[in-house]
């Protein structure tokens, strides 16, 4: 089935982004760069997983719920990233420079 194949590709791609997010979290040198990795890679990862699952959803309402969850996480992720970065700046946590 073509939709199964597409779902598989999307889900695996999503997993790769999650892995990249975690690697960034472990490898990047300061909290700001780690935030970059976590926020962007994980949100794209979740987006791909949601897309892959939405193709398999049995009803339109379920697909809608998946989309709603993704939007919610997107909003939360962006706000939290900004809040952590802003607070870290205010509290004087230094930037990593080469």
């Amino acid at each position: 089935m073509p939709s199964d194949l597409l779902s598989t590709v999307l889900l695996i791609a999503g997993g790769i982004f999650f892995l990249a997010g975690t690697l960034g979290l472990l490898r990047f040198p300061d909290v700001y760069t780690r935030l970059h990795a976590l926020t962007k890679a994980d949100n794209v990862g979740l987006g791909l997983v949601v897309a892959g699952l939405a193709l398999q959803a049995e009803s339109l309402a379920t697909a809608g719920k998946l989309l709603l969850i993704w939007l919610l996480v997107l909003l939360a992720g962006a706000s939290v990233a900004h809040l952590v970065a802003a607070t870290a700046r205010q509290r004087g946590i230094k930037l990593w420079k080469q």
């Binding site: 990249a20 962007k40 987006g47 080469q98």
Partner: peptide, 24 residues
């Protein structure tokens, strides 16, 4: 653009030499 953002940061995180030079 956000997909590209994810790809960009994933590429940097997976790259062996970690090509970043952060700034404000």
């Amino acid at each position: 653009r956000s997909l590209y953002g994810g790809v960009d940061v994933a590429r940097r995180a997976l790259h062996p030499r970690l090509p970043i030079s952060p700034g404000l």
